[in-house]
């Protein structure tokens, strides 16, 4: 029985990879427990903490980590990785565990949102016409604001030659539209030459959290493409 278990250990020392995920240098772990001691998520998922997860991977039990709630309750805050005396990239490892999860088993809406984003340009599927109309309406509100009117304000969309192009967090047009005015007021006061894209304006990259590198890159490429299209010098990413 014990010998069977030992066969499961797949340590590739040359590339410092263990099994199918890439917990760089995990086999260097001294099991000191610095990670687990400093991790605010220790104790939240019975049976797991960062040290145990790393040890499990070293012992070839990576599938158990991938199937557990651990990599998702961990907030990828990076304290463990920052303090690890052996330089083990724990945060990257746990994100790699997320990547290894089957897509239909990613908890919550982040995978669905990522797919929605690929299809419609933002995580919540807000249609272009609704978005443009909302921006126009909010612009009029700002002009006529009773406390601090901003006469001349409007939201410049796809404006050629803008200095700054801004991404938007879809939760704002969806549910907290007035929160977009904070930045807009700053731009008004600074007389910034700025703009927003009419499409693919999403600033929240859920692929980063769901461990979906391919989708994450598509979204980043879109943000850059939007900036190139209007020849904007600067991308502001207020995330």
């Amino acid at each position: 029985m014990a010998e069977e278990a030992v066969k499961e250990i797949k340590v590739d020392r040359k590339h410092r990879k263990i099994g199918n995920i890439a917990p760089e240098l995990a086999d260097r772990c001294y099991t000191c427990g610095t990670c687990a001691g400093g991790c605010p998520a220790t104790g939240l998922v019975p049976g797991w903490d960062p040290r145990k997860a790393i040890r499990a991977i070293v012992f070839g039990m990576e599938q158990e980590v991938i199937d557990s709630k651990w990599p998702w309750v961990c907030t990828l805050c990076g304290r463990c990785q920052y303090q690890c005396p052996m330089g083990i990239t724990l945060m990257r490892t746990f994100r790699a565990c997320r990547s290894a999860r089957e897509r239909d088993k990613v908890p919550g809406p982040i995978h669905k949102g990522t797919m929605m984003n690929l299809e419609r340009g933002n995580n919540l599927g807000i249609p272009k016409d609704d978005f443009l109309f909302l921006l126009a309406e909010l612009g009029v509100e700002m002009e006529n604001d009773e406390e601090q009117p901003c006469p001349g304000f409007y939201v410049p969309v796809d404006k050629e030659g803008a200095n700054v192009i801004v991404t938007i967090n879809s939760k704002e047009p969806f549910g907290e539209p007035d929160d977009m005015k904070f930045w807009w007021k700053i731009f008004y006061a600074a007389k910034e030459n700025w703009t927003v894209s009419s499409e693919n304006w999403e600033g929240v990259n859920w692929g980063l959290f769901s461990g979906d590198d391919a989708s994450m890159k598509v979204q980043v490429a879109r943000v850059i493409e939007n900036a190139r299209k209007v020849k904007a010098k600067t991308i502001l990413y207020p995330e």
Binding site: G38, P40, A41, L44, V45, K69, W72, V73, C74, T75, L76, C77, R79, Y82, Q83, P107, G108, P109, I110, G113, W206, F209, S210
Partner: peptide
């Protein structure tokens, strides 16, 4: 550099683990 996460990072705000998020 060692300040604590708010408890909702890494997508946890959107995940179905509210009790863990609040305990964190």
């Amino acid at each position: 550099m060692n300040n604590l996460c708010c408890g909702a990072g890494g997508g946890a705000w959107a995940m179905p683990y509210d009790e863990e998020r609040l305990t964190y």
